[in-house]
Amino acid sequence: MDDETIRLITGCAKNVRFRAGDAIARQGEPADEFFLLREGHVALEMPAPQGGAVRLQTVDEGDVVGWSWLVPPYHWHFDLRAVSEVRAFSIDGRCLRRKCDSDPRFGYEMMKHFSVLMADRLEATRLQLLDLYRGPAAASNP
């Protein structure tokens, strides 16, 4: 990212902290922010049909969490829970969307970065769906 892009993002950022176990976001609620993790672990979860939650993925220091702020209708697609003490930058999604609307170059930069994030998550989810560790060995090992 160039300096101008970083300046525009940090203009919408603030520091946040969460304690282990805190619910950071809930599926279906307005996604008015995303997070850049500075420290700690965050779990992406979905409510399980049988109760409780299924943990889909965990993300760590340096990871970006949340793309729902960029995709209408701007609602979280999953729950976010702090697995440990978490320090992060919270980036205001509404603030950033306004900047994207008024500066198409910046908007395109955001789209490029978040489409990579979405593609990575999609690929990881596809691999999870393949259920890699079941089945194939049965065919090769009598």
Binding site: R55, Q57, T58, L127, Q128
Partner: peptide
């Protein structure tokens, strides 16, 4: 692990996601 409940203390996700870390 590819899937886990909230009691699992380690990473969740496919093993390839560990490589950049």
């Amino acid at each position: 692990v590819d899937r886990a409940g909230s009691e699992w203390p380690h990473h969740v996700g496919v093993v390839t996601t560990l490589i950049p870390r």
